[in-house]
Design a protein around this nucleic acid. Sequence first.
DNA 1: TATGAATGAGCGTTCATTCAT
DNA 2: GATGAATGAACGCTCATTCAT
Lengths: 229, 229, 229, 229
Amino acid sequence: MTDIPQPRKSPRQLRSQHTVDTILQATARVLATHGYAGTNTNLIAETAGVSVGSLYQYFPNKNALIAALHQRHDNQMLDVIDGVLNSNPAATLTERVAAIVQAMLHAHLLEPALHRVLEREFPLFDTPREHSLADQDIHRRMRHLLELHRAEIAQQDRDLATYVVLRIMESLVHAAALEPPAGFSTERLEQAVVDAVMGYLATPGGAVPRKRASAPKAGKPATRRKTAG
Amino acid sequence: MTDIPQPRKSPRQLRSQHTVDTILQATARVLATHGYAGTNTNLIAETAGVSVGSLYQYFPNKNALIAALHQRHDNQMLDVIDGVLNSNPAATLTERVAAIVQAMLHAHLLEPALHRVLEREFPLFDTPREHSLADQDIHRRMRHLLELHRAEIAQQDRDLATYVVLRIMESLVHAAALEPPAGFSTERLEQAVVDAVMGYLATPGGAVPRKRASAPKAGKPATRRKTAG
Amino acid sequence: MTDIPQPRKSPRQLRSQHTVDTILQATARVLATHGYAGTNTNLIAETAGVSVGSLYQYFPNKNALIAALHQRHDNQMLDVIDGVLNSNPAATLTERVAAIVQAMLHAHLLEPALHRVLEREFPLFDTPREHSLADQDIHRRMRHLLELHRAEIAQQDRDLATYVVLRIMESLVHAAALEPPAGFSTERLEQAVVDAVMGYLATPGGAVPRKRASAPKAGKPATRRKTAG
Amino acid sequence: MTDIPQPRKSPRQLRSQHTVDTILQATARVLATHGYAGTNTNLIAETAGVSVGSLYQYFPNKNALIAALHQRHDNQMLDVIDGVLNSNPAATLTERVAAIVQAMLHAHLLEPALHRVLEREFPLFDTPREHSLADQDIHRRMRHLLELHRAEIAQQDRDLATYVVLRIMESLVHAAALEPPAGFSTERLEQAVVDAVMGYLATPGGAVPRKRASAPKAGKPATRRKTAG
DNA sequence: TATGAATGAGCGTTCATTCAT
DNA sequence: GATGAATGAACGCTCATTCAT
């Protein structure tokens, strides 16, 4: 539980790097096909065509394998955001958010079973979501994106907004990709994620009087101004 | 994995009912303090001051204990929504959403460690999110709420909206209560959840041209009409 | 393992006797339908419509139940033999053996599953087949039968013969009733048991020179005289 | 109950083979000394001087251990018959049967306690006596033996005769070796087994009128013709 | 370095038996 | 007597990890 999930040794040789990759692939496959409960290091090693001993040469323990997979996933997400940031400089925020959501969804749809497991099994869950480096990078990139489009955003606190947007994206993309509710196409769900993100950003925020407010007049929806000229 | 998490026998005598409660309390405590990996039935029984045999008299297996805890939690959430629905008939949607969010947050803050574990460990996760009865009720209630306030909502598909709103609430409330980002007060996080929900509902949706549409001109934000009047 | 399998108290009252019978019936049924591994006292009690406590009022432990069932079976066999002995005074040995075999077979065919289990599970197997009273009675009756027909028997030692005949009957009747080889009708198997018993009895016995005998001439079958004029 | 009792992996290395042997020896010893009820995998492993893990590396479950012991025993019996078949071509059927009986008895007398347990505990007893390969071989060999000596046999159906002979041998050898009745020497019991087998084979069979035949006149023994010229 | 046989603590679960009611 | 909730020792089995080869 309190293990350091770092690769035991950084593979300097090519062969080692290849072995590490193979093991990780095997871990993903076993996790996806057998679920967490059915996953064990011996099976992973066997699937990878490697001996258990070798596995432990590169990963100090089972948790490290899962942590590495999380790492990998975080990096993929990071790449997704980076890709969007670095292309089409003229795009609107909505377009960019849509592009990110679409790419995320796509990534999750490649191995839904694996992601279903990864979503639940976070080996170091004692430590309060000790953000991985990639995780911090993701935050930074997203914050940068919001900064770029600050004119299109009603939310004032961009740091908080970054956090909220990432949470919304994560949960809704997971929902859409991994446990899609019956009756809705992936396209509509995808659109819903974008709606949720953009809707939040378009909201000034903090407008609701907390507790004990004299009951507002009527059913008028939250008033909203266009966020940009 | 494919177990039926139904109590083995419904306790008829008072003594039995008490035993069941005690066991569930103990499960929550052990889960919260030891995490899922550190939780085992013998420890639960010991903590409950009960023999393992008694535990298995009422719960067919370990998973059933967790499932029961989920059930309990779902029912709490259901009560929260019901409570809001049944009070203050003149309230706006925003106020009601705010009330629900606040109550949810409050509920999660009572036993954050337990909820942290419950969030990840869903013993029946093979079954494609086979919504518990309470879960379905929650959906129904929320849909009813949106129906009541349909005039304040821009999203057309109220079924989809219900799903999205519940997902957003769940993920952001969890985030706010169980792994709050440093630097933000609970109040602000709470407000952010409301913003996200209301922002989404206020968005007409579907406005984004999908793939390969003639690239939009410029950085115009997602257009948005006032949802009502 | 070293338990005394005697009923804890002899049921003097009618109600008690009935309870005991019910429990024994239930034991038989559970044993037959669930096999030994699937049989447990709680299930037996439930099947009998009686509480476990009551069960233990009449049987000191699980083994006692099985022992009682064996007892019951032994008594049935005893009755079978008695019945044959007490009828048709003019019958030949062959006819009587045939009648016994037939009755035994019939008895086993009523509850083959039960007998299959009973055959294997003899609770006191440590004690070297401590013959039950009924068992001893059976031996006595069979010896008496052979005595009556001594003129038709070639085997000299009637005590040994009794033992052998009972063993043959038991094993072949079990085989015929409980695991009949494919391709043979019950009738033929039944006949085979009679053949085996009568064949043995018709053999003078001890005719084979032990080890180192000067090799006999040829393939002549074991010569045999008619056993009786 | 419905387990496949195949070794989990066939040990390729010498060390492995040795481990397997040791485990089987230990199983036999524990079974013989503690009985089936007193036998458990941890004890077996301990007795073998091996860890439970190792035991389960080669045997999928407890039953597989017993099944392997049965296998071993079946093979021994097979060897016994083969040995007799391949020696002394001039021997009569009686001599050969005597030799087989003697060898079987001898084999059982080496580890009577073990065989006592094995006789009762046949882990695969659900499967309708799915004869092991060795078991089938035994049948084939015995049938071949009867074929060779068909001139010395009165029973017409040699397939049925094979079955009956094997059952008789098995039950009487067990009786003689494992629970010898007081008062008889092993030699006499051995002779009795031979008598039973040869007596059965010398009987034409089927001579008994079935049910309700006009009652035969008197105590004439089962008539019997000489089986061969 | 790689292998894979071996380890053994530990877990989920059962069930014969007891005893307060 | 009868009940059935409670007990808890014990067992089958797993699997992360080690280490001799």
